[in-house]
Structure formats: structure tokens, C-alpha cells
Amino acid sequence: MNKQFDNNSVGDDGRDYEFCASHDFYGHSACPGCGEKILFRHMLDVLGPETVMVVPAGCAAVTDGVFPHSLSPVPYLHVPFGATASAAAGVRAGLDMTGRKDVTVVAWAGDGATFDIGMGALSAIAERNENILYVCYDNEAYMNTGMQRSSATPRGCWTTTTPKSRLKEEPKKDIDAIMIAHRIPYLATGSPAYLDDFKAKVEKARDTDGFKFLHLISPCPPGWRSDPSDSIKLARLAVESRVFPLYEVRNGVDYKITMQPEQCSVSEYTSCQGRFAYLKSEDSERLQAETDQAWAELERKEK
């Protein structure tokens, strides 16, 4: 059952900036060091109680709690795996038709639900410019079912379906480019290591009409074979190595890199994760070259 929220933390502008802090946020069953729960909590701090969540199968579905318990302080609608985007469009339509246009509808889905099984429906709501905030917490594999590869899994990565004998051979699908090609009003990337940057983007997304897409890097200690206490460090190294650059794009054309920390090498990011333990030196060099090329491309687009 959802807990009622208190109003102790309402700011001068009437918004509940400490919404989740004031709400105990107790009892989730996520693994220690899970990026998703940190991101969820801080997103809700910005969005506040006038929010409805639409959540497909995945980590966020099972870690919210087992019936009748639920961690969420806002309405939370579970939906089938490939149904996220369409169900969110239905929630939007239903709220609009019953006089609740001011409520923010958030689709909150992992990379499997977003890059793979929900891709067609995601493309459809982007093309229709539905007034929805779609957030992908990307832990780069089907972590909830036990670390199977998704199209978000990086090249050279170990998963249970890309075992040591056959590591993933294909590069990660460029979901941002796909969404940008839909010329959506707002797209941004985010990391739990840069919360101010993330929260500013949630606020911009909330205040933008039409379709918004946030792509978040979400460290996963069991899947990444990393230490739970390293999650924030890894979320920072992902940005510093430029494997996961922080930027935003308006209307598919207006690029802005929002964080330019001093660069570290890709191997600094990969070396503390067991999932990259089987990378050979030439694979690492290739990853570094691809990352540098993508960053140069991003800088070119920003100009």
C-alpha cells in the first residue's frame, strides 16, 4: 500500500523538493548499489506527487515490492513488457479526458523494455509526440532475468547469453540517435553520479510539452560484476571516459553537452567491472577508438 505523503518539505514555489526524503522509501527489494532506485528517488523529488508511473516487467517492477506492499509514493501501474509506451499513452489520454492534464505521466523502463521488446511502441508514441516523459534506466542487459544480453549491451561484454566463449560481438544500439531522429522536443542523458545535472534535466523534461526521453546509465553490481560500493564511481567513470556522455538535444537538432569532466580512459571504466574481464587489449583499443569517435561526433553536432 502506498504511504500518504507529508508536506514538510514543500518549497517556496509550492513544489515538494524533498518529496522522497519525506517519504521513507522503505522496503524496496533492489540489490545493494542499484542505480535504478537512486535515479527513481531523485526523479520523484523533482516531479513530486502529481505523477503517475507506468512500469513494465523488469527490475523496477519486481523491486517495487510484492503485493500488497509497494514502495512508490505515487500511483504505479504495472504493465506487460512490450506495453510500456502504449499503456503510458493510454494513461495520458485517460487523464486528459478526465480533467487531469497537469499530472506528469512517466514511463519508467529498463533497456530490454526500451531498446528491444518495446521499441515499436516507443517509436510510435515519439512519432505522435505524446505528452509523456519516457525514462530508460539502462543497465545494459536483461539484469532482472539474470544478465542476458540486450541490444544495449556493449561490444566485448560478458553476459549469461554472451558467455566467455562468445562475448557480444555487436556494438550497443544507439538509442539516442534513434530517438533524436524522431525530432522529439527533448532528449537528455543522465547519470546518478551527477545528480544536479540529472535533476535539472528532469525539471526541463517536466516543463516541456510533448514527448520527452531520458536515457540514464544505471549501474548494476550483480550484472556488471562490480562492487556495490563502486556504483556511483562507475556512473562517474562512464561519463568521464565519455562512454556515456551527458548531453541534451532539443527538437532533434539543438545539441548541448552538459558535463565536460576531465577525460579518463575507457579501460579505467571497464577494468573495475567483471563483465569486461575477457576484453583483449585490441578490444579495449577498439572501444577507446569508438568512444573517441562518438565524442568527436557529439562535439561536432553541438557546434
Binding site: A83, A85, A87, G90, V91, A93, G94, A121
Partner: peptide, 28 residues
């Protein structure tokens, strides 16, 4: 008719859209 017609890309999505809409209390 004062209704929202959501023009989806598949029947899977048509029914998923109604799952969302009906959960808000709307007639679908």
C-alpha cells in the same frame, strides 16, 4: 464525440493503450 482516439502502430498497442486509459477510470 468528445473522445481521444489514440492511433497506434499495432493491436498489441491498441489493447495496451486501453489498459492505461481504463486504469484512469475512463470508458474505453
Amino acid at each position: 464525440l468528445d473522445a481521444r482516439f489514440v492511433k497506434v502502430e499495432s493491436e498489441h498497442s491498441a489493447m495496451a493503450t486501453l489498459i492505461g486509459a481504463s486504469s484512469t477510470g475512463s470508458r474505453t
